[in-house]
Simulated assay, not measured.
Amino acid sequence: MDIQVNQTSLSLPEQATLADALSLFGARPPFAVAVNGEFVARGQHAARALHAGDKVDVVHPVAGG
């Protein structure tokens, strides 16, 4: 199946989870994740199934002042 992570297309096997997508994408903590605009807590990444066409946003914190 094809999904998008930060507007980059990724191909994953059927039954892939959010954790699988994050690993393939190479996301490194700390980050927050949303699937189709809905926040997914870190403890739910391995349980959150993905579907073809899903859009995943990985956001890293920014410090400054």
Rank of each mutant, 00 (worst) to 15 (best):
K55M: 07
Q4R: 07
G26Y: 05
F31S: 10
H45T: 04
P61S: 03
D2N: 09
G64Y: 07
V35K: 04
A34P: 00
A52Q: 14
V59E: 07
T8H: 11
G43C: 09
Q4K: 07
P29M: 10
A32Q: 08
F31D: 07
A49Y: 03
L22S: 01
K55R: 15
A19I: 02
D54F: 13
I3G: 03
A52K: 13
S11M: 02
D20M: 12
G26T: 05
V62C: 05
L10K: 02
R48N: 06
G43S: 04
R42E: 14
E38W: 02
A63L: 08
R48D: 04
V62K: 06
Q44A: 12
V59Y: 09
V58S: 07
V35G: 10
M1T: 05
V59W: 07
Q7D: 11
G65D: 09
A63G: 15
H45W: 15
H60S: 13
V56A: 05
M1K: 04
H51L: 01
F25Y: 15
A19H: 08
A34Q: 11
P29Q: 15
T8M: 06
A27Q: 05
D2F: 04
G64I: 14
D54G: 05
A16K: 06
G65Y: 04
F31E: 09
R48Q: 15
N6W: 01
V5F: 01
P61F: 10
G53S: 09
V59D: 10
K55L: 10
F25L: 06
A27G: 02
A63E: 04
G53D: 11
A47M: 09
A27F: 06
V5D: 00
G65A: 13
G65N: 08
L10F: 09
S11A: 13
T8K: 13
D54N: 11
Q4Y: 04
A41C: 03
V62P: 00
T17S: 15
A52Y: 02
D2A: 06
E14S: 11
A21N: 12
